[in-house]
Simulated scan of single mutants.
Amino acid sequence: MNPNPAALSPKKPANTIALPYWITEFAQIRTAGLAALAAVIIGATLVAVTAAQRHDADADLQHATRLRDTAHSRYAHVDSEKRDIRNFQRRYLELRQRGLIGEERRLEWVDAIRQVQEELQLPPLSYQIEPQQPVRLEAAMDLGDYQLRGSRMRLHMELLHEMDLFDFLGGLHGRGFFAAQDCSLKRLAAVGGGQANPAGAGGASGAGAAGGNLGVDCTLNWITMAPNAGAITSAPSVALATGRRP
């Protein structure tokens, strides 16, 4: 049996392509290249993490700055209020003692009228006090938790001459807080025997001279300041104005 000539003949080498030198020699720097690539990735990750942490730190700093500014503002406000309290406490107690702050003191007002009348030796007078009402101011005023209230008093009296009216109002100013809304004077036809009290008068104060030469009708608004209350907020308001001077 004859052998196969193809099997007995030697194999011819296959055609090969020469690779670039940097590929054939890459095996020598493969470890260093991978290490460099890993270092770049790790470095980029650290930079990104650092940037995020810095952003968070800036946000925390801004928040802490706002909290500090708010706390400083509150501290300054409290310190200012403490100074105001120290500065105005004595004045507040004085006004409270004189009757401006607190509930109205009608009995003290009537007693003040009687005292001034006796001091000036004025003829008998009569008065009528209306219910207390909120005061409407022409210009806005910050009163905090307090409300300005007024009690309107209509006063009728007889005087010997015009200066008695100024002396009477001046004496009342030292005993309370009020605004004279208007006053009207008229000369009486006959002297002596004082006139009768007007209808609906709330009271009368006697003693002093028997009569006068002038008849005077005044409207006074006695002023007080009290904490806000919803009970009288819907009531008609009193316009605080001095009106014409007597």
Rank of each mutant, 00 (worst) to 15 (best):
W222E: 00
P227V: 04
V216S: 00
D182G: 15
G174C: 09
R187H: 14
A231T: 13
F178Q: 07
E162G: 07
G208R: 08
G215S: 10
W222M: 04
A207E: 00
T219Y: 00
T242I: 09
G174Y: 06
M225Y: 00
T219S: 06
L220E: 01
N221M: 04
A207N: 02
S237I: 02
A231Q: 11
A204Y: 03
V191T: 15
G193D: 05
A229K: 09
W222R: 03
F168C: 05
S205P: 00
L240W: 05
G203E: 02
D217I: 02
G171K: 08
V238W: 06
G215R: 04
H173A: 11
A190V: 15
D164Q: 13
G200K: 05
T233S: 12
H161L: 00
A241T: 12
A196C: 04
G203V: 05
F166C: 06
G230A: 10
R175I: 05
L185S: 13
H173V: 04
R175E: 08
G215C: 01
G230H: 05
G193M: 13
N197H: 11
A231H: 06
A180K: 09
A235G: 11
T224A: 10
D217C: 01
H161T: 06
T224I: 02
H161M: 07
L220C: 01
R175L: 11
G174S: 14
G212N: 00
A201T: 06
N213W: 01
G192W: 09
G203K: 02
M163N: 13
Q181K: 14
T233I: 09
I232G: 03
K186A: 15
A190W: 11
G170M: 06
P227W: 04
D217A: 04
R175K: 15
A189G: 15
T242K: 14
W222D: 00
G212M: 01
I232P: 02
P198M: 05
E162W: 05
G206T: 11
L165F: 12
G174T: 12
P227H: 02
G211T: 01
R175Y: 09
S184F: 10
K186C: 10
P227K: 05
A235P: 03
A235Y: 11
G170H: 13
D217H: 05
C183I: 15
A241H: 12
A180N: 15
C218L: 04
A226W: 04
R244C: 02
G170T: 11
L188I: 13
A239F: 07
R187L: 15
G212I: 03
T242Y: 12
G211Q: 01
T233K: 08
A210F: 07
A235M: 11
G176K: 13
G174V: 04
A226S: 06
V191D: 08
F166Q: 13
G174D: 10
G176I: 08
C218H: 00
M225T: 02
C183P: 06
G176E: 09
I232H: 06
D167V: 03
P227G: 03
D167F: 10
L220R: 01
A201N: 04
L172T: 03
L240K: 07
H161Q: 09
H173L: 07
T242D: 11
G212K: 05
A210N: 06
C218R: 00
L172V: 07
T233C: 02
T224P: 04
S237K: 14
